[in-house]
Design a protein around this nucleic acid. Structure first.
Lengths: 245, 245
DNA sequence: GTCAATGCTTTGTCAGGACATATTGACGTA
DNA sequence: TACGTCAATATGTCCTGACAAAGCATTGAC
């Protein structure tokens, strides 16, 4: 179970060495070069092989341990435990999920307007009532079936959504490109019966709806986005891999 | 925004120094001694104050950064961003959730038997059909209202549930006490309408049910537990704090 | 008065070393 | 054969030291 691992380092790259190692290790695991159960060489040997110091090698391994892909045991060694780790729910984005699954999909923008926040919305965004916000309603289809109704509010001060084509790319992707970096999100997942509007839009009949409320924060602790989404439960579920540390 | 922090270290304790620091820092934040927005001293100053090296101090801070409570900015400093972080979904356990909320609750064990796994269950537990397993059905009440139906399967080889009082303590708590350590769990959260049995047990009428399927793994990558739970959506929702790294 | 250059502060990355401790297996003894 | 001891192995913790890079504020030139 030793390594036919070929890890290459680029010391002139701005990408930290430990990150280069972690990425290539993760790739090897995901591609099955290293399978669950395989032991990797000990830290010191790996560090020597790659011409790195032990702390740097440890930092690389630690990244994958945190992701739940590797397990270290003192006196024993480090082992692969899970090959496929579903994205750590890195702030679940439906669009990404669907794209990854390769399903045919499209999004219809029902409403995109800049307006003054009412009291409820302002509170959700930690703003004052009357502050400028974006209100965004979208309807998402998979294989031409309506799947989800996505309602979002964002502080207008943070990002400009004018002329943004939200039909062809996800909201989170746009935020990333605009330099808005998410750090923490509080999510609440529940279920409920559809109301009249939802039933009409989602054509869900008597299918229960899965609901997701999310408040997302940036580095500074400001609210970036508040979302209230509903999904047809016969077509969608949240899948999460949790790691206990 | 400087520190009236009083962190005490015990170098004779088996608890690592970085962990002692992290725990006391986290407590200070949770208790509001350090409020969101406050800046903490720089790493070097803190290390000197506590008589630690900078890497040790960094390691302590890093754990709180990973939890989403602190944010570091190069050239600027380290700041508190979130005071209350909902348990990182450390493998959500309903019992803990309810206990924390201080609600009056009780659990009824509907079935607890040791049996041979049928093919479906064996596959879920990554066992062979016919292997010994535990089957556990529980009904949970809050304020005397039925809230959730919990169905679990566990490999009999891993833990003995004979004479375990699952009415008065959570399953996960018992597993921890038995030395079974959880590392990774795959969860799937969805919604559905109640079937006849569920409607009868949960008296849910037409309330949609929130469903949670979970497969939990230990350090070795073996399946510890498979659970299929349903919750009354009018009484329960999953709350999760996600951290993007 | 505006803007660019510069320097200081703080975190980020990396190296190398030392000792502690858990685990395993081999060895020797009862 | 069974059990305890001990050594080898690998990770865990902690230290010192150094330089890089990003942010911010101040300074200086135009």
């Amino acid at each position: 179970m030793s390594d036919s691992l070929s890890i290459t380092l680029d010391r002139s790259s701005p990408v930290p060495l430990y990150h280069q190692v972690a990425q290539q290790l993760e790739l090897a695991i995901r591609q099955g070069v290293l399978a669950p159960g395989d032991k990797i060489d000990n830290e010191i040997a790996l560090a020597n092989t790659l011409g790195l110091s032990r702390p740097t090698m440890r930092q690389a391994i630690q990244t994958l341990v945190d992701k739940g892909m590797l397990v270290r045991k003192r006196g024993v060694g480090t082992q692969v435990v899970h090959g496929k780790i579903r994205r750590n729910v890195e702030l679940t984005s439906l669009y990404d999920d669907l794209a990854a699954a390769g399903q045919q999909q499209r999004t219809e923008v029902l409403a995109l307007r800049r307006e003054h926040a009412d009291e409820t919305t302002a509170a959700q965004l930690r703003l004052a009532a009357g502050d400028d916000i974006w209100t965004l309603h979208r309807l998402r289809f998979v294989n031409d079936e309506p799947l989800a109704l996505l309602r979002n509010h964002l502080p207008a001060a943070l990002v400009d959504l004018t002329d943004v084509d939200l039909a062809s790319s996800g909201l989170y992707e746009h935020l990333r490109r605009a330099g808005v970096h998410l750090r923490v999100a509080e999510q609440r997942i529940g279920a409920k019966a559809a109301d009249d509007q939802e039933r009409e839009l989602l054509a869900s009949g008597d299918v229960p709806l899965l609901t997701m409320e999310r408040t997302a924060f940036n580095d500074a602790g400001s609210v970036i986005e508040y979302g209230h989404h509903v999904y047809r439960s016969d077509l969608y579920a949240f899948e999460i891999t949790l790691v206990d540390r």
